[in-house]
């Protein structure tokens, strides 16, 4: 059974195996297919039209499935690998071990944002940015430059205390847990972390930065924490909502999975804290 661990507690060997599996997916072209899929949904999901991956109730189950697909791809390379998560409310500094050269590498240099160390630095030769929106082919970051602070644990707790999963109009204007976690309203959790990292993480092709998976693995864990805190609250809406994925409707691009199939993460993996 897959156990997703806090990245801060990974052993040197676990880090090495995770990095090697990611680089192998990159080498074979499988990695970039994930970037392409994500960007297609970023561009296609709109507040007043069809919306599936973002700005909608299915933001959470869509990313849960997306991460499962990626984790299974990693495990096809090395069966011992699981997705780690980054608790950015605790490891909130550019000096965290997450950004060390033996794991994800650090922030970008000031001139052009280019990441200069770690396995994903352009200079290492193994991480070309192919799926991109501009001419730059190197991984970029500006940790903490565009927004000073990552969310605090108190801000996380304030969102986990919201008892209603989601509310009409089921988009970026909604009140409720999902949209506050996503960050279009309120203290802003998920969106703010993308902005804090900067570089490709702030764009539609954000999975170009491997930290994308660790960020979303923690967002996914917060959904599980919310379920535990609010056992009588469930996914909404439950039926008949135009442009929105209801509980029992299938989700693109897979078309074989419904939010209802993804509510219980323990069918697929557990967390080190479960």
């Amino acid at each position: 059974m897959t156990v997703r661990k806090n990245q801060a507690g990974l052993t040197a060997d676990e880090k090495r195996r995770f990095v090697a599996a990611v680089l192998e997916l990159k080498r074979t072209g499988r990695y970039d297919a994930f970037v392409t899929t994500h960007n297609a949904f970023i561009l296609g999901d709109t507040d007043n039209g069809e919306r599936t991956g973002h700005r909608s109730p299915s933001f959470l189950p869509w990313h849960r499935r997306f991460l499962l697909e990626f984790e299974r791809a990693l495990q096809s390379v090395d069966a011992s690998v699981a997705l780690p998560y980054w608790d950015w409310s605790t490891d909130r500094s550019p000096r965290s071990s997450l950004w060390a050269p033996d794991f994800l590498g650090g922030t970008g240099r000031s001139r052009d944002g280019q990441v200069m160390d770690g396995p994903f630095a352009a200079s290492a030769g193994n991480w070309p940015i192919n799926v991109r929106v501009d001419a730059r082919t190197f991984l970029r970051r500006q940790l903490g430059a565009n927004v000073r602070e990552l969310p605090t644990r108190a801000e996380v707790d304030s969102v986990l205390s919201m008892a209603t999963y989601d509310m009409a109009p089921w988009n970026s204007a909604s009140d409720g847990f999902r949209n506050h976690l996503e960050g279009w309203r309120g203290v802003n959790l998920h969106n703010r972390v993308h902005v804090w990292v900067g570089g490709q993480m702030a764009t539609g092709v954000s999975p170009n930065d491997p930290v994308f998976w660790l960020h979303h693995a923690y967002i996914d864990k917060l959904w599980a924490e919310w379920q535990r805190r609010n056992p009588r609250s469930g996914y909404l809406p439950t039926g008949g909502t135009p442009d929105v994925v209801d509980l029992g409707e299938t989700m693109k691009p897979w078309n074989d999975v419904r939010p209802a199939d993804l509510l219980d993460h323990t069918a697929h993996y557990t967390f080190d804290t479960d």
């Binding site: 960007n39 970023i42 561009l43 052009d112 944002g113 991109r132 929106v133 501009d134 001419a135 730059r136 565009n146 927004v147 960050g183 279009w184 998920h190 969106n191 703010r192 993308h194 902005v195 702030a202 764009t203 539609g204 092709v205 954000s206």
Partner: peptide
């Protein structure tokens, strides 16, 4: 698309944010 998680008040502000983000790089057409 180059500043997707950070809303700004107007499309002009989005264009300026894009220029800031691009640091001189050429945008690829969608």
């Amino acid at each position: 698309v180059v500043s997707h998680y950070d809303p700004v008040p107007t499309p002009r502000a989005a264009a300026r944010a894009a220029v800031d983000e691009l640091q001189g790089a050429v945008l690829l057409p969608f």
